[in-house]
Design a binder for these strands. Structure first.
Length: 526
RNA sequence: GCGCCCGUAGCUCAACAGGAUAGAGCGUUGGACUUCGAAUCCAAAGGUUGCGGGUUCAAGUCCCGCCGGGCGCACCA
């Protein structure tokens, strides 16, 4: 059984080559070339070795490639390109399960964690899509992932929410406040007897239910919702105890020396009114995370939280956390309407909720658009465009690949070809016999692309960047549509038909797998 | 003022710890359905990667300085 991807195997062979010569250098994974004429993978290792071995890159590339014959290496200007032979791809696809780079790791993925003071907006949507996709990817790479939502149900904002329910204050306004007020009125007639905080807390629970519904509609299920209030009651004291060598009192507030860990200034954990800050409670929350013993603490935050990373890192180090702490920052979503940028404002009523977006463009398209962009890039979400051109959206291009192959198989069934095909496939598996048609360039390329998919997943996982998979799927779809247009799948010749059906099926499976990692559906008809 | 991110085709964006002739989609122009789904395909046009220096075999990518945009810089969350 194959446990390594083709890229990993190439890397291994190169490492062998270097070991024989006693050269120590980190061998990078082979990459996917920009231009498809260079094959499916390439490595630039010869350039890196040139100064060490005191030979020209070309010479080195030639030498290394003798170790890599099975992958059909082609040396061009010092690069080693691989046009992966069908026999290799075939053997790989039929036996490979999935990457193992996070095998056995316990991962806590905390994301969205929106304030329960209002509905989710389109910015949350992006974080939700990214967090969900990365959780899928990590799971696929062998991790045990727990998705978690942290409920900010403590602090001043909850009091302000309570005030808003009473009809006071300027912070929270809008129809949803009125709706929540109506719901609470059913149980509590008189608001004057209840504190702002308790009323706000009650309201936040109602709003949280709506948030959960939206997330569920968006296809995201959290294993756990952790309440800030509860975790603070349970662990704030312990957290303070752990921090005791690093805190001091000033102006009757308690500060943590985060500057010792590279922060710009020390941060308040307990305010002068003796209430904890958000950060104070967050220390308690992260202590809770540490106690649950994860290998990786992963979280997706909006880019406006970037200044917060050092703070949490400081606490984690004080508390002796040994695992990895990974924060994925996702840039803001800028709403474009009528060709103009709209400032998101609750007061101005220009607040576009995630629900509204989903109504307009649908769950799959929304996710796909969110995930086409690299997380570092601010996203211009043109709502008119997304509506108007929903059928030209790239998501349909990829989904169409899947639907098309499904339809192809329905047609094959009509023609009574499927049982013969299944037998042919069994033979392919057991006898490791390849078909001549696989060696034609388009067929070879499609099979190779399918196998290289797993290398792409690994990159995506290492970089915590789901957009890698999105663009891979687009290029696979493009290759398939082109193939389909040019070549008839169901022909009079059985061997040709079956091998082309097989390739189509592989493309379908990879497309489905890739889409599922993104959280996007793979419809059988469209 | 300080910190983080961004600036790539008319528009929206790709390009993995620097690699080859910087790629897609939309839009524009022209072609392909009596044939497995044309939500598709083929082709053309479109670029001094914001500007100026530097590092090196090689820079969209790294360093320095500008210019432009976003976001932070609370005893808010």
């Amino acid at each position: 059984m194959n446990q390594k991807t083709i890229g990993e195997r190439i890397k291994e062979k190169i490492e062998e080559f270097l070991k024989d010569r006693n050269i120590k250098i980190d061998v990078p994974n082979p990459e996917r070339p920009k231009n498809e004429k260079y094959g499916e993978l390439f490595t630039d290792i010869a350039f890196k070795l040139s100064p060490l071995m005191k030979k020209s890159p070309l010479q080195i590339a030639e030498e290394i490639s003798t170790y890599l014959k099975e992958f059909n290496p082609q040396v061009v200007n010092g690069f080693i390109n691989f046009k992966i032979p069908s026999s290799v791809s075939l053997n790989f696809i039929l036996n490979y399960e999935r990457p193992k780079i996070l095998e056995g790791k316990r991962v806590l993925a905390e994301f969205v964690s929106a304030n329960p003071t209002g509905p989710l907006h389109i910015g949350h949507g992006r974080i939700a899509a990214v967090g969900n996709a990365l959780s899928h990817i990590a799971e696929f790479c062998g991790a045990e992932v727990e998705r978690e939502f942290y409920i900010n149900d403590a602090g001043e904002q909850i009091e302000k929410l309570g005030k808003a329910i009473k009809g006071e204050g300027e912070e929270y306004k809008g129809k949803y406040i009125e709706d929540v007020r109506e719901k609470i009125r059913e149980k509590i007639k008189d608001f004057s007897s209840i504190s702002d905080y308790e009323l706000g807390f009650t309201a936040s629970r109602i709003i949280l239910e709506d948030i959960k519904k939206t997330l569920e509609r968006f296809g995201i299920t959290f294993k756990r919702f952790v309440s800030e209030r509860e975790v603070s009651e349970k662990l704030l004291k312990t957290a303070l105890e752990i921090m005791k060598d690093y805190i001091y009192e000033k102006d009757s507030a308690i500060f943590l020396r985060t500057t010792q860990f590279g922060d710009e200034k020390d941060r308040v954990v307990i305010k002068s009114d003796k209430k904890p800050t958000y950060f104070g409670n967050d220390c308690a929350y992260h202590l809770d995370k540490i106690k649950r013993k994860y290998d990786i603490l992963f979280q997706v935050w909006g880019a406006d939280h970037h200044g917060y990373i050092k703070r949490i890192e400081s606490f984690l180090r004080i508390a002796g956390f040994q695992g990895e702490f990974i924060v994925k920052l996702v840039q803001m979503v800028n709403l474009i309407k009528g060709g103009k940028s709209v400032q998101m404002s609750k007061r101005e009523g220009t607040y576009i909720t995630l629900e509204e977006l989903l109504d307009e463009v649908g769950e799959d398209a929304a996710k796909f658009i969110y995930l086409t962009r690299n997380c570092d890039t601010p996203l211009d979400f043109d709502i008119d465009m997304a509506k108007k051109k929903s059928f030209e959206n790239p998501v349909y291009y990829v989904q169409y690949t899947h639907a098309r192959v499904c339809s192809l198989f329905r047609e094959a069934e009509n023609r009574k070809m499927l049982s013969g095909y299944e037998k042919w496939k069994e033979k392919l598996k057991s006898e490791k016999k390849t078909s001549n048609t696989f060696d034609e360039e388009e067929e070879r390329n499609l099979l190779a692309l399918c196998s290289v998919f797993y290398d792409e997943v690994i990159v995506s996982c290492k970089l915590w960047e789901p957009s890698r998979i999105t663009s891979f799927l687009l290029s696979l779809a493009s290759a398939f549509h082109s193939f389909y247009q040019r070549k008839r799948i169901l022909t009079d010749d059985e061997e040709t038909s079956f091998s082309r059906l097989f390739i189509s099926e592989m493309v379908k499976e990879i497309t489905k797998k890739g889409l599922s990692l993104l959280g996007v559906s793979a419809p059988e008809r469209m």
